[in-house]
């Protein structure tokens, strides 16, 4: 067990290290001087040289990488020349907005999807189930940014029920501003999780101990809630851990559409202005988030599943 855990942690660190090095090399491999891009065409040679020194570009590549890793360990992600602020400050200022959005989205999706999945498992192969199986696939397939634009059009622009842009100031305002973005991100997850719960529920309902409970005359809902759900929910827990990459991707679009603050909006504007330090910072932080989440869910899954646990 400890060996496995150790292996996973080493692997996670290795992945992050490789990813960082790759990104670093890619940025350096791009033709053109990043300093020149940043300063614009009217920069003098002295300005460029000064910026080079400031960014450490005048040193050999290996030194730059080592310095970069050294900085990372202190939580230093580099320096943004445009705003004259550390990249870490900027990224971590925006990160809470994104995490808030993701958490609210996944929360409402789970609250709807788990009961829905149970209901569909109980009413399996009924008309409701068949219609739902098509609708849920559809919600998964339709890209979140299309949903976002459409709900914006309907509820904010046409009906004017909900605010179109921003994140809100006080608690109530924040919640109201979250409704449409969280809907756009979560709707696909409602489909996904409900299908997952339905499938694992059906698998468990077919097992012996559940049939036994049924033979005692317990109602189907009771069996589902008391005996099957704790087991059927497991795949969902894992998938949310793995799905953080997907959530972050939708967050990028949704933040742009609703003009919300967040790291998605941050990286889009940074890409538009070719602000490499910020781009790098966002990629780093999100990669770290994803690697942590997948490692945790892998370890949790291996630990919860008795079949794999024995092999550890």
């Amino acid at each position: 067990m400890w060996l496995y855990l150790g292996k996973r942690i080493v692997l996670a660190i290795a992945i992050i290290a490789i990813a960082v090095t790759l990104l670093f090399l890619m940025i350096r491999a791009v033709p053109g001087d990043p300093a020149a891009v940043l300063l614009g065409p009217r920069a003098t040679l002295e300005m460029k040289a000064q910026l080079h020194q400031q960014m450490g570009l005048d040193k050999p590549l290996v030194v730059q990488i080592v310095a970069f890793f050294g900085g990372l360990l202190h939580g230093d992600l580099g320096f943004d020349v445009f705003s004259q602020r550390p990249v870490a400050d900027i990224v971590f200022e925006q990160l809470p907005y994104t995490i808030e959005l993701i958490l609210v989205s996944i929360f409402w999706a789970v609250m709807i999807a788990v009961p829905l999945g149970c209901y569909l498992a109980i009413r399996r192969n009924s008309l409701v189930d068949q219609v739902a199986s098509v609708v849920t696939v559809a919600t998964i397939a339709i890209p979140s940014f299309v949903v976002a634009v459409y709900v914006l059009l309907i509820f904010a622009v046409t009906l004017r029920w909900l605010p179109a842009i921003g994140a809100g100031n006080n608690f109530r305002d924040v919640l109201i501003h979250l409704i449409l973005p969280a809907f756009a991100i979560g709707i696909g997850w409602v489909g996904y999780i409900s299908r997952l719960v339905r499938a694992s529920m059906l698998e468990i309902l077919g097992e012996n101990h559940v049939r036994m409970a049924r033979s005692f005359g317990l109602s189907e809902w009771r069996i589902v809630a008391r005996y099957a759900l704790p087991l059927a929910i497991l795949p969902t827990v894992t998938i949310i851990g793995v799905g953080i990459a997907w959530l972050l991707s939708s967050a990028v679009f949704v933040e742009v559409v609703f003009a919300r603050p967040g790291i998605g909006a941050l990286i889009v504007s940074a890409v538009n202005t070719r602000n490499y330090p910020i781009v790098m910072g966002v990629v780093l932080v999100t990669t770290f988030l994803i690697v942590t989440a997948t490692t945790l869910s892998d370890v949790a899954n291996a630990f919860l599943d008795p079949r794999t646990r024995e092999k550890l």
Partner: peptide
């Protein structure tokens, strides 16, 4: 482990 859209944005 790269977040796909964010990785795409970085590449772009």
């Amino acid at each position: 482990s790269f977040p796909s859209i964010i990785f795409a944005l970085a590449m772009i």
